[in-house]
Amino acid sequence: MAFSADELRVLRRALATALNPAPLQDDDVQDCLRLADSVDEAVREAGRLRTFVLADLARYREALPGSLSGYLELLQEALGAGYDPGADDLAALRALRGSPGAAVLLARCQVLAERSVRARLARVTQATATALPARARLLALPGGRASEEGPKPPAPSGPARPGPKAPAPGERPVPKPSEVFPPRRRPVPPPPPEERAAG
């Protein structure tokens, strides 16, 4: 954005007034309002131009590889205007690596994309840190139920083994392994032949 000589004079007067407050004449107030309107219009025009360039860039990207030169030119223009290259741009440039211009732009876009991702992660981390209050440590206070009950016996050393869980009301208890798989009984040997003959 470039200011004309008249606009720069108005801007200088406005800055001087902001640093050293003093009553402004009506003409100075009108000049400041006109300058503010001009800046707002320039910002709106820049937004419209950015929207147009990005839509054009998407059309050229879809027409690749036939639109290579136009795509690279538009991408450079968009990057100069602060555009963060997306995954589609990186994929298109990787497919066009045979072109020296595409290879140079790919390296530049990878750096910009990585920087953009880091900045987004930093913002998310900062927002999360400010949204979640720091947890205060819980301190045991003297007195209370623990002192009324007296000292507790020391906990047994070694890993604790969980005992059997009691079934809930109306729930069938879990059978023991010996109930599911009863022990096998050894077969009784047949009587000797003499006893069979005598019988």
Rank of each mutant, 00 (worst) to 15 (best):
E148W: 14
R108A: 13
A63K: 05
L11H: 04
R108G: 08
A127K: 10
R94Y: 12
D84W: 04
A103C: 04
E41K: 10
G163M: 09
R161S: 15
S38P: 01
S38C: 09
P133S: 09
L33D: 06
P169H: 06
Y60H: 11
G70I: 05
P21E: 00
P100G: 04
A198M: 08
P162A: 15
P187H: 10
G47F: 14
G98M: 05
G199F: 11
R186V: 14
P191H: 11
D27H: 06
S99W: 03
D88W: 03
S4H: 08
D56F: 02
P153L: 02
T51V: 03
V124G: 15
P193H: 14
L75Q: 00
T17K: 05
R184P: 13
T125F: 12
A197K: 11
S4N: 11
L132Y: 09
P189W: 08
E179S: 12
L79H: 03
A46L: 09
R12S: 13
R61V: 05
Q126Y: 13
P191W: 09
R34I: 05
P23R: 04
A63R: 04
A136I: 06
G47R: 15
P169T: 01
L90F: 05
A129K: 12
G98N: 07
A168T: 08
D6L: 14
L79M: 10
V104P: 03
E45V: 01
R118V: 13
R135W: 04
V43D: 06
L93I: 10
R61M: 04
L33I: 04
Q110C: 05
P154T: 08
P169L: 03
D31R: 00
F181K: 10
A113Q: 02
V43N: 10
L15T: 05
A22H: 07
S157F: 07
K176Q: 11
A168Y: 03
L112Y: 03
R108Y: 11
S38Q: 10
A22W: 08
V188C: 15
P175Q: 02
R9M: 02
L139Q: 07
P156A: 13
S157N: 14
F52M: 11
P154N: 11
A78H: 00
L33W: 00
R115D: 08
R44V: 01
P169R: 03
D27M: 06
P192N: 15
E62K: 06
P177V: 05
K165Y: 09
E7T: 00
M1D: 07
G170R: 01
G98K: 03
P156T: 10
L90S: 02
E194D: 15
